[in-house]
């Protein structure tokens, strides 16, 4: 055998892949204890908890993309979204719950980008779980200080003349960016338009795909 450290090797001689090998943190142990007690006392069931996790995992940026595609094609909906985004999106079946939603529109002159400097507030009902970078201290602290450099690292370089507006999601509101509709998409169906809308374009760290991308 070429290796000496047998406890780090599987029976076939390969190193074990790193896993959750560290001991539980205080909060992890507390969560497990509370969860097990709630199940033991019949307050909830393991199936209900698994179902809730499943429902959270099933929310994807496709929800947000449907909102954007409708805003691009239906002027009445676009106006309703500007007026009260929580209500407009709830009518599409995307209820945001106790939170409130604001939709901010990108134009040729204005680019919006969303961050939560205090934690990781994110419109989960429309975009699913936030990506790890959205919760990182680097993204949270740099986006309010040097948004253009942050955008450049995402591959987005905007003209100096384009105004950048950073939305710090500090309290009860959640934000979705309505990117500018790509040129060359006249007459496209909502479904095809939605395929151009990326998660990052609704956070403001990206732009929609080019129409050529779908050909």
């Amino acid at each position: 055998m070429p290796h000496d450290h047998h406890d780090h090797l599987s029976p076939s001689g390969h190193p074990f892949r790193a896993d959750n090998d560290h001991p539980l943190s205080y909060w992890q142990a507390l969560e497990i204890a509370v969860r097990e007690l709630l199940i033991e006392k019949g307050v909830t069931t393991a199936a209900e908890i698994a179902g809730q996790i499943d429902a959270m995992d099933n929310r994807t940026p496709a929800n947000g993309a449907a909102v954007v595609a409708l805003a691009w094609t239906d002027p009445d909906f676009r106006a309703a979204l500007q007026h009260d985004a929580s209500m407009a999106t709830a009518e599409m079946g995307f209820d945001i719950g106790p939170m409130k939603l604001i939709a901010v529109e990108n134009t040729a002159e204005l680019h919006n980008i969303v961050v939560c400097t205090l934690c990781s507030c994110y419109p989960r009902n429309l975009l699913g779980l936030p990506p790890d970078w959205y919760k990182s201290r680097a993204y949270r602290s740099r986006t309010v200080r040097e948004p253009r450099r942050v955008l450049a690292e995402f591959g987005v370089t905007l003209p100096e003349a384009t105004h950048i507006r950073v939305h710090d999601s500090t309290a009860d509101m959640r934000y979705i960016v309505i990117p500018a509709r790509p040129k060359g998409t006249d007459g496209w169906s909502k479904k095809d338009l939605a395929d151009l809308v990326t998660r990052d374009s609704m956070v403001g760290t990206g732009l929609p795909k080019s129409p050529d991308a779908l050909v």
Binding site: P147, H163, V166, T170
Partner: peptide, 12 residues
């Protein structure tokens, strides 16, 4: 970075 860019935040 660009003095005229803006930040909007919710303040109680």
């Amino acid at each position: 970075e660009t003095p005229t860019d803006t930040v909007e935040a919710e303040i109680y």
